[in-house]
Structure formats: C-alpha cells, structure tokens
Nucleic acid binder design. Structure first.
Lengths: 140, 140
DNA sequence: AGAAAATTTGCAACTTAGTTGCAAATTCGG
DNA sequence: CCGAATTTGCAACTAAGTTGCAAATTTTCT
C-alpha cells in the first residue's frame, strides 16, 4: 500500500521532470491521500516523523504548482477584501472576476447564477460564491 | 455630493445601531464609492488625509461585518490551500464546501457546473471556481 | 447642557503565513 | 563516481491581522 503510493509519487515526479527528492515524494504522498485542500501546516502535520522545514514545503508546493500538478484551492489571495453587501441576496453575491495578467478585480454585477445543489447527501448549502479568472477588457 | 455621502453613511450607521464615529463614517464612505472589494490598505489609502490606525480600520470593518453591512469577498481564508489538480478540467475544479459551524471543508466532486458567461463585454473567462457555505452533514 | 455609562480609538507588542539570500546537501546525467 | 544543476535548511524578514489596555469619543439619562 504505502510502497505503491511511494512509487506512484516518484512516477509522477519523474514524468513532470522534477527532481525526485525525499521532500517532494513525501509531500506528494500526503496530497495523494488527502480528501480536501490542505494548508502548509496541515501537510507538515501529516508528514509526521518526516519533518521538513516549512520553507521546503512551500517551495515543494511551488514546484508542483509550476508544473500544474497542484492548485491553490479557492484561488485565495493573501489579504481579505471587503465590500458592501447591499446588492447581494441572502444566498449569493455577484461573481468576482480577477484578471490573470494585471491582477485587477471587477464585480460582475447583474448576473445571478442558479443556486448549486449538492450531489452529496446531507449538505445544506446556504450561500454560494463564484470566482472567475481570465483576461479583462484592457488586457485581452 | 460629499455631504450627501456623509449623511447617507451616518444614516446607515444609525439604522444599524452602531456608534456614529468619524472612523466608521469615513470607512463607510469609501466603501459606498468603491467599485470593487477593497483591502484594508486600499481603504487606508483612499481615506487620504483622514488617517486612522489600521487596527481601527479592521475593527470598523469587523463591526460592519457583524451587522451584515459588509462582506468578505471571496469568502477568503487567511492561508493558502493546496490540492492535486488531477480531476479538474482546464476551466474548473470541483466546488468546495465549507461548514459555517465546524469549519470543515469538503470537496464536492462529481459535479460540473455550466461555465459562466459574463454579461459585461470584453471579459475573457478562462477559469471559474465556486465556493459553498452552509452546514455539513455532521452539523446539520 | 452635564455627567455617567458604553463604546471606540491608538499604541505597542505579538502572531501567523509566507518569502528571501545564502551556504551546505542532494540528485541527476554521463 | 564526478560535476553541474537543483533542492534544502537556517536565520532573518515582510505582510496581514490580532490583542490588551489606557485614553478619547459617543450616546444616554436627567
């Protein structure tokens, strides 16, 4: 089982043309077994005895991101962004668009998306929010 | 014009039963004029001469959040979350669900949403991501 | 209006998340 | 196994946000 995972991780790294180091294999193994997006500290915890410096973990993730093996879930940014809630309904706000080139953000007001229904039993969805990425008029 | 904005801000604060202080009026005015979600530092910048301590700005935003006048756009969390990109298409990943009670996050795999189309001309949407909030099976 | 009570503000110090430079260690290709 | 390329750990740093507390402001009560 664990051998398998190890081999799989190594294989993946090799095809991605990344150096196959202890750190990368370990982090990748954690991600392969994860059932949800993880933060650096959560990954570190799951590495257990195999300790790596947090800088190493971040840099490993960076390399995995670079080759497209990994995503940043939530397309999060580092800082919080605030806006008035006035023209948002209880269940959703307008979508936000962020330009991948210039980084500018725009509110795409005037569109309301159909409310998502979970395919998994037992989830009660109260609010949804959609984030879009692409090129803004100025950059396109 | 500016008088109007001021009055409007005061009115809003009054109905929300918040102390009507210089800081709150100023921050609210900025938000009323904003065309997109703003970070604390961006708000500070727009306050111009009316300087307030960043702690004050954060606490002001907190109070506006508390009474529901303001949102955190992107439902952002403070730290980045990473996950394997394997079962995501070029244009979207599965939606993520976060429980507002216990804070747990789940991947709602197995659903693909229709790709959003911008109602505004000139936006080229490459990727979309949906985030859901509500109660998870355990908390519901 | 004036005073007491409630709330907000600013400051300094702190935490958390993530980054950078650099020297030492590891990995790869021949 | 050697040398070049890449990765690692460390320490020090930045950015974003938080906390405690005393002083200032706002509201309420009379």
């Amino acid at each position: 089982m664990r051998r398998d995972l190890d081999l799989q991780a190594r294989q993946i790294l090799k095809t991605a043309k990344l150096y196959c180091t202890a750190g990368r294999v370990a982090v990748l193994r954690v991600l392969l077994r994860a059932d949800k997006p993880l933060r650096q500290d959560q990954i570190a915890k799951r590495l257990g005895k195999k300790r790596f410096n947090k800088v190493t973990i971040y840099r490993t993730l960076e390399s995995l991101l670079r080759v497209g093996l990994v995503h940043k879930a939530f397309m999060a940014e580092r800082a919080w962004h605030f806006e008035l809630a006035h023209n948002c309904s209880e269940t959703q706000c307008h979508p936000h668009f962020t330009c991948t080139k210039c980084g500018s953000t725009h509110c795409l007001t005037g569109m309301s998306l159909p409310m998502v229904k979970s395919p998994h039993k037992g989830f009660h969805i109260h609010r949804q929010q959609t984030r879009l990425e692409g090129l803004c008029p100025a950059c396109a």
